[in-house]
Amino acid sequence: MQQARLIHAVTLLAADTPVTTVASALDYAAPSAFTAMFHRALGVPPSGWFAPSSEGT
């Protein structure tokens, strides 16, 4: 179930959906709870998921 929520979250984030909207769409009580789960599962916060990489620069 968490994997499905993460896939949905990443899809929404890829479409530039704000983190607060993603958290609400996934039924999290607060954006901070969603952010904590996302960071725990993927190793980066939602705001950093699609951030440009500094590798190779």
Rank of each mutant, 00 (worst) to 15 (best):
Y28W: 02
A33N: 12
W49A: 13
A41Y: 14
W49Y: 14
A23Y: 03
A33Q: 12
T35V: 10
A25G: 07
A25M: 13
L26Y: 05
A29L: 08
S32R: 11
T35S: 09
R40I: 05
A29C: 06
D27K: 04
P45I: 08
T35D: 10
P46S: 04
H39A: 14
L26T: 07
D27H: 11
A23R: 00
A41G: 10
S24P: 09
A36S: 12
S47W: 03
A36G: 05
M37D: 15
F50H: 08
L42F: 10
A36H: 06
L26C: 09
F50G: 04
A30Q: 14
V44L: 10
F38E: 02
W49C: 07
G43N: 01
G48T: 08
A41S: 15
M37C: 15
Y28C: 08
W49M: 12
L42A: 08
S24K: 08
G48S: 14
F38I: 01
A51M: 12
P45A: 07
M37V: 15
P52V: 13
S47T: 10
G43S: 02
F34N: 00
A30H: 15
S24H: 14
T35G: 07
G48L: 12
A33M: 11
A41C: 15
G43M: 06
Y28R: 00
L26Q: 06
T35A: 12
P46E: 00
A30P: 11
L42D: 06
P46Y: 04
F34Y: 02
H39P: 01
S47L: 09
A41D: 15
H39E: 15
A41R: 11
R40H: 11
V44P: 09
L26A: 03
A23H: 03
L42T: 09
L26M: 10
G43Y: 00
A23G: 06
S32F: 14
F38P: 00
L42H: 03
H39W: 05
G43T: 01
A33F: 14
G43A: 02
G43V: 00
G43D: 02
A36N: 03
P52M: 13
A36M: 08
P31G: 07
A36T: 10
D27F: 11
P46V: 02
P46R: 01
A41P: 04
Y28M: 03
F34R: 01
S47A: 12
S24G: 14
P31F: 06
A36Y: 06
P45L: 05
P46C: 04
F50Q: 06
A33P: 07
A30E: 15
A41V: 14
A36D: 10
A51F: 08
P52C: 13
L42I: 07
L42K: 03
Y28D: 10
F34M: 02
F50R: 03
P52A: 14
P52F: 12
A23F: 07
R40M: 11
W49T: 05
W49N: 02
P45Q: 01
S32K: 08
A41K: 13
R40K: 11
P46D: 01
F34W: 05
A29S: 12
A51C: 10
V22A: 05
A23T: 05
W49R: 06
V44R: 08
P46W: 00
S32M: 13
A51L: 13
L42N: 06
F34L: 01
A36W: 01
W49Q: 09
Y28P: 09
A29V: 11
P31W: 04
